[in-house]
Design a protein around this nucleic acid. Structure first.
Lengths: 348, 348
DNA sequence: CGCTGTTGTCAAAGCGCTTTGGAATGCCGT
DNA sequence: ACGGCATTCCAAAGCGCTTTGACAACAGCG
């Protein structure tokens, strides 16, 4: 059933039927009701491509997932982010489109999205320092918003980020207050802007407290359970093990926990662990009592809000960019406790 | 830059340019080269919507994510599945489109996808018993493949599934061989077809060994860490705690582990845990030595293959449905060991 | 009664591509 | 020199929608 058939059936012109369905005022309420009823009865819905061709936009948002050198890694927060964004998209009648691309083809992927007209806008994930995507999108004129920030970018842009620096200052500060001095940082890949900020927050807190920042106690990698396990393990097995860990993700933190476990160390007693928590739906930080002491912020909510910002931007491309800096919430868990001097020496 | 402009620029008709770019034989190699060069130079790529309108298909695959009563849960395997599928789609020039929908609007979402012509086919996730989606899609004529199976469905369809029953027979059998008799099952929601099969495998192995299947030792819920923790905790705190667990997902298994931990029980020694493992990229079952004794199968690979099957099906809708039953691989981890009679009694 | 405004409707022109059915060109053999 | 046959190209007709500009019909006004 297409517009032509429907209009013939109704003995009306295509124009009138189209206007009736799209809520234009030039059509009488009587005919509008008749048209809407017929459309429902015959399960008519306009062809998306034809509609898009005529209007010049696709009502579709793009998300480009680029697979970097690390190869086959999937960002674990991806699902929750998309769930949040999807909710907003659905509300506004937008679809979401995913494109997977090898890192070197990234620029071309965005150009294609634009020139093929597949999407009305895109969300930039995992921004890096001086991220080349932002000037590119600016140049080709594809509306976008950024999940996070890209320091070093000259052009203004819309973004939503959590206050990573402050969050890590607080996590580190919490451990310092508990008397810890040898604190390790298990970070994400430090190419990524958020990881840089987290590190800066960590270092600032350490320096403010006059605690030494030991490069041997800083590891950065893909935020997997394995990274947490391996990096923490190495540090714990070293000559001068840390008494506490600041971790970039609850998934890594699980790995750190496992590393402690393997060495007979009790988390929260022998060694403390404080982590960032994205509030992933399948990995809540305890349903009743928090497992980890953490700074938390829902990545799902970020997706929903960021989607809202993008749609706004698509509607009015000339509007000034909007930015959001979300503060994160501290929760006290069982994973941190007072420093016991040198308990980890005894271990191994 | 569109086709018209490009053809004017080349002093050729739109027909010729189009044919040259699409590899039709009616155009001489000389002009084809000229056209291709010009297209690249001017970064021309055809408008996807116009192309779709003209050809009648969208080169796009749909994935409908329906949010069920459980509300805000995001399937943790989703990301890895999409990564695998996305790889295949990219290879064949397909895009992927996600639609998020409340459970009650599911049928309408599929109808819309079809009548709006947004996608050429869809992947069905998390099939249930007598899943209503299959007859629906059959009726409206939208090509589809199923990740898993839906028992009780009359119409034939293409699917790819792991042998859940056999996997759980093996996991359970392994524990039985180690002398365990009171074995608990931490399952996914048993509406879902795969969970039913897993339970059947568990029960079959128990019955074959003459071990009692205790309803108090079977829990089914959303496969989160919290479910594993809470369900295992209750069982461990009961009068007659289990000596071993069979778990439906590595994420749940982490929760079970935490529950053991909280009670001072050592996994693999005091209590055994055997789990299914989807080989999630951010949560590998140990990089060197496996953490858990598990039956494993890559959900990412499943995504890639299933995508291949769907594209095949789209190309030839009349072809007979294809089915794949993947056997899973057993890995021995440190999480299982011989049954110690009644060690869990002492605990709590 | 003619004039201006409003209201409800429509025919037709795109949107940018593919594809059908010709048509022009060049080359061959006879 | 001419018909026949490839080869190479093209004009135009869609695909299903939106939107422009025009047009009846009817009201209200002086």
């Amino acid at each position: 059933m297409n517009l032509k058939e429907l209009s013939e059936l109704l003995q009306l012109s295509q124009t009138t039927v189209s206007r009736a369905l799209n809520g234009y005022p030039e059509v009488s309420e009587a005919t509008r009701a008749r048209v809407v009823a017929a459309a429902q009865a015959h399960k008519y819905s306009p062809n998306a491509r034809a509609q898009g061709l005529a209007t010049g936009h696709s009502r579709c948002i793009g998300h480009v997932i680029s697979v970097r050198d690390s190869g086959e890694m999937v960002n674990p927060i991806f699902g929750d982010f998309m769930a949040g964004a999807g909710e907003t998209y659905a509300k506004h009648g937008y679809e979401m489109m995913l494109t997977r691309v090898e890192a070197q083809g990234e620029a071309e992927a965005y150009r294609n999205l634009k020139s093929r007209g597949s999407v009305d806008g895109v969300v930039i994930h995992a921004p890096r320092k001086n991220d080349s995507r932002l000037p590119l999108l600016h140049e080709i004129g594809l509306p976008f918003v950024v999940h996070g920030r890209a320091s070093g970018t000259a052009v203004p842009y819309s973004w939503l980020d959590v206050n990573n620096r402050s969050a890590f200052e607080q996590l580190t500060g919490h451990l310092l207050e508990l008397g810890h001095r040898r604190i390790a940082l298990i970070n994400g890949i430090e190419d990524l802007d958020f990881a840089t900020r987290r590190r800066a927050g960590f270092e600032a807190a350490m320096q403010a407290a006059g605690a030494a920042v030991d490069p041997a106690l800083m590891a950065a990698n893909e935020m997997t359970e394995g990274h947490g396990y391996a990096s923490a393990g190495e540090m714990l097995d070293s000559d001068r093990p840390p008494t506490a860990f600041v971790v970039s993700s609850i998934i890594c933190a699980l790995g750190v926990h496992r590393a402690l476990d393997a060495r007979g160390l009790r988390m929260g007693q022998d060694v403390s662990v404080a982590t960032f928590d994205d509030c992933l739906s399948y990995l809540r930080n305890g349903d009743d009592a928090p497992i980890f002491t953490a700074m938390q912020s829902s990545v799902r909510a970020a997706g929903a809000t960021l989607a809202e910002m993008l749609i706004e931007r698509i509607r009015d491309a000339s509007a000034a960019p909007r930015t959001c800096l979300w503060e994160t919430e501290f929760v006290q868990g069982a994973s941190t406790g007072p420093c016991r001097d040198g308990p980890t020496q005894a271990a191994v």
